[in-house]
Design a protein around this nucleic acid. Structure first.
Lengths: 333, 333
DNA sequence: TTCGGACTCTTTATCGATACAGTCAGGTGT
DNA sequence: ACACCTGACTGTATCGATAAAGAGTCCGAA
């Protein structure tokens, strides 16, 4: 492999001068700089990032841990985060956790190993009980899901308020028997329990009765999960005319399941999701949803960790909540 | 920061013994191992990956360069690749190239910088002309798109054959005026030109006339692109009863555009896509498609680079073509 | 008794880049 | 004429881990 030494020898300078040229140190004579650059070119030299990382104590890499990249919500978030980070000269490593607590912790460990300068963690499996494990000595931002009040920055989605608004939207459109399709896995507080809370509050404030038979839990927030929830709901015989879905992906699955059972959306049942993934704009019918402003979330997450990397030590851990708006489309027309 | 030296001192051994414990070197006395482990625990020591990478000359990281992670096709491919690579102890860094030639080249440069032990590149912007730039000294696999015959391993999708089969499928179901929605950006050979070839051949072999007015080019293979293509097609007034779409994502957009114009699928027009993304199983109507066996592609890609990393120097660059099958669903019923 | 070998641990050199201190020539100010 | 500074470099130690080689110890077989 071609090293800096080789370049230095070829250019007749010290390795330090090569390093200075590469790092745009100003006090290098033009003639020397040219000679070094020519040698670099001739030999096809490339810096060895591992060596630079070791010496500099930084990796210029941000970790982003998500349950699954192939879920549109996370894919679209990842895309935004990558775009913003790479504009600032940072690479992004995506770790897939499968929403598993152990894997989420192992992403944190990776960062402790100095693999990443910072970690953005979309935590699902971690609970309030793990709060102490989050007391880390590198910049970290927790995204979205569970509430923490922990020792790190946390960007929350408007879970309660968003679902509250979504449920109110269905009520305003005329639905009275409103079901909710949500996750059933971990201990509260989590996304499902929070959004459930918003749903219940909206029903109560509108004087609509809550029927436990209309609450459907699914193990995974996927298309398949949504479809089977819809089938169970229809097959149960319980009457319903609206469904609040915990995510858009689930909602798309729900609409498919309703279609399979001959239930029309929105004529028989109104459906609303949460997340505003792009697919919802193109589904048939188009999906109404809660749009939590992902651009804001991604930008804030990246900016927060970059500021901490830059050495903003004054920073106190804070809790942010993204703004949102209800997007009314065909599925609740 | 706690280093190996600190642990060694605390445990009263040399750093090499600490290293041996960490790397499961068998010939360490139990008592010594325990002492070291206790010291590691007490001090909260973590290996420094940068140092290990430098010394070992490996990073245990594979780069995966894709146009966009948020396109379902790439997200689902990435997920499979990550899963398989991490089973072998490798991390995956995703680089987003935006299908841009410069960015694809810069992914190659990153690997030259020894950031990745290998690179899996979903090349779209690179063309046959860039063949020489692919002559690299690290394991690399090119995925999917353009044909190369270059100096690296290449896993191609069954572009011609798959589209041929898709078109024949439409013909078998009764379509005769078959449109194609494809990309219009770069120079052939590329995905679009190859798939176009399969389409033309199927028409010819079936004695169906090709009408250039039924060939719609779009700048980006997105949902929005598909929708606008469908609108243009309907608005042009040309009669058609089938559409071959270059990807499933485009097909979903096309179906939305047709619905907006009051055209029914499959009653008025049959639609088939390519890729077998999960969303197509849940769309309304369900999308028929060409399924190129992504599991096979992902597994092959990872296994190829791992074998090369492991030092299989005998390896000759090869061209693979994934197997495929036509999945008939509601959109061509 | 002696020798080879398996264990258990240590010493030393090294991966490639960079921080830091230092050298040296040539100018500036007084 | 002397101290002092600046620009343009160089030499060396160092980041933290590991490969390779070596040095004792202990045991069983010849």
């Amino acid at each position: 492999m071609v090293t800096m030494q080789d370049v230095a020898k070829a250019a007749g300078v010290s390795t330090m001068t090569v390093s200075n040229v590469l790092n745009h140190y100003p006090h290098v004579r033009d003639e020397t700089r040219d000679r070094v650059l020519r040698a670099i070119d001739d030999l096809g030299y490339r810096v060895n990032v591992a060596a630079r990382n070791l010496r500099a104590g930084r990796t210029n890499t941000i970790g982003f841990a998500v349950p699954e990249v192939d879920r549109p919500y996370f894919g679209q978030l990842a895309s935004r985060i990558i775009a913003r980070a790479s504009a600032a000269g940072y690479r992004v490593v995506i770790e897939q956790t499968g929403a598993d607590r152990e894997n989420e912790l192992s992403a944190i460990v990776s960062s402790r190993n100095r693999m990443y300068d910072a970690l953005i963690l979309s935590a699902v499996g971690l609970g309030t009980a793990d709060r102490e494990l989050l007391r880390v000595d590198f910049p970290m931002v927790i995204l979205g899901e569970t509430v923490f009040e922990g020792p790190v920055d946390h960007i929350a989605l408007p879970n309660v308020e968003g679902t509250f608004a979504a449920t109110r939207h269905l009520i305003a459109r005329g639905s009275r028997r409103i079901a909710i399709v949500e996750g059933n896995d971990s201990l509260p507080p989590n996304v499902s329990s929070l959004r459930h809370g918003g749903y219940i509050r909206a029903l109560r404030e509108s004087g609509v009765e809550f029927d436990p038979a209309l609450s459907i839990g699914i193990p995974e927030l996927t298309l398949a999960g949504g479809r089977s929830a819809a089938e169970r709901l229809v097959d149960s015989g319980t009457a319903f005319d609206g469904i609040v879905c915990i995510t858009d992906t689930v909602a798309l699955g729900v609409m498919r399941g309703l279609a399979d059972r001959g239930v029309r959306v929105p004529e028989d049942v109104r459906v609303i999701g949460f997340d505003a993934i792009e697919e919802g704009e193109y589904s048939i019918p188009r999906l109404s949803t809660v749009d939590p402003d992902h651009d804001e979330v991604a930008a804030l997450a990246v900016d927060l960790v970059l500021r901490r990397i830059a050495g903003d030590t004054e920073w106190q851990p804070r809790e942010f909540v993204s703004s949102f708006r209800v997007v009314a489309r065909e599925s609740t027309a």
